[in-house]
Each structure stands twice: as structure tokens, then as C-alpha cells.
Design a protein around this nucleic acid. Sequence first.
DNA 1: GCGACAG
DNA 2: ATCTTGTCGC
Length: 229
Amino acid sequence: MEAVIRHRWNLSEMEAIELQRELAQKVITEDRLDPIHHVAGVDVAYSKNNDTLIAAIVVLELDSLKIVESVVIEDTVQFPYIPGLFSFRELPPIIKAFEKIKTTPQLVVCDGQGLAHPRRFGLACHLGVLYDIPTIGCGKTKLSGNFTEPDQHRGAQSPLIDNCEIIGNVLRTQKNINPIFVSIGHRISLATACQWILELSPKFRLPETTRQADQLVKKTLSLHNHSRS
DNA sequence: GCGACAG
DNA sequence: ATCTTGTCGC
């Protein structure tokens, strides 16, 4: 896959924030999806010993939710973890993985927020805009906003609100299990995003896309450590 | 100043 | 994110 927009990554904190404000204007918050056959998940894992990281993209067939293709890449940390600038840490390696993938997904589920971000431009928005592909932000914890606890049944949700605007949904994907934080990434509405996340989470708290990507990066990282530390 | 703070 | 396998509980 090839990105539509390219930009520098070795930016100062201030420059990164400015770039977010600029790119945030390109986010599309309504449904512009193509018929979905393949859904992708992306994740990154970090070594405790050195600055090595593993990034992976997994492509699942929608019908079976089985992996049809995956790409794993090794890289080194180039940007610190700063809340609100997460994408500048994780997207460079993720993009390297995207460059190698052959099966183009019609939807990408990201491990982190989309619009539910201080400047409304979380990692999911950033990835979506750079590739002009539909993306969903799906985080385990919140970054911005306030909410009330959704009902305990699967599918229950309550709006995530920040500055009087709905920036996402707190969605319970399994009965009596902690909810997750879903927000628009790019080219999808919040309602449609939640529908897809529910469909992708038939058995567990997190969607199958992020679970598969998470397992892959952790397994790969442990193999690296086995032969070195 | 204090608390919050995706992974 | 990472340190950490098996184990207790729904």
C-alpha cells in the first residue's frame, strides 16, 4: 500500500502539534466506505532492554475473522511517548509495515484513539488521512472526555463528551466486561464504527483485529529476546 | 499549584 | 508500553 500524504517525522513537539492541527482539517467524519472484504489491525510492542520495537499489521478476512496476511517489522524508537503525540511514535514503523502489505484492507482498526483526542487527531485519524482509508480508533482507556458508565449488557454504549461535543463512544463489547473507547478515525461515522467494532468482537473485549495484531507483535518480540537476552 | 495523561 | 505464569473466579 502507498500513502497519499507524506511528511517529515523528525519534528519537535511544537511542530508535531502544528501538523496535527493542519491535518485534522482533512478528517472525514461520515461514511465513505467501500464494500468490506478485509479488515486490518495494527499494533506495536516495545523491548524492555533496548530501543527495539516490533510493528505489525494483520489483515483478516471479514467472514471468518481469520488472518489472510500479516507483515512484521523491526525498528527502533525515534520519538518519545507523549500523550497527544502518540502517532509520531508509532506511525513510522506502522507505515513501514503498510508498505509491504499486499492485501489492501477496506477498513483499519487502530489501537488507540481517533477523534477522541485533545486536538481531535489521534493515531487513527492520522493513519486514515495519510492513506485516505477508513479507520476506527479503538482504545482500552480514554485520553480525553467524560462519560457515564454504560449498561452492563453487550452493545451498551454512552457518549464520550469533551467540550460539549461527542468525540466518541464508550462501548461495552461483552456483558459485565469493561467497555472500550471507540472513535472516528477517518471516512466513517461514529455509529457505523461502533457497529463494526461489535461485529469484530464476537467473543472478547477487544476486536479480533487488535487481538491478532497484539499477539503477533508480542510473540515476535519474545522470540527476539530469546535469542539475545 | 493540582490532577490527568492513547501505548 | 514493560516487569510476569499460573491461578482464582464468573
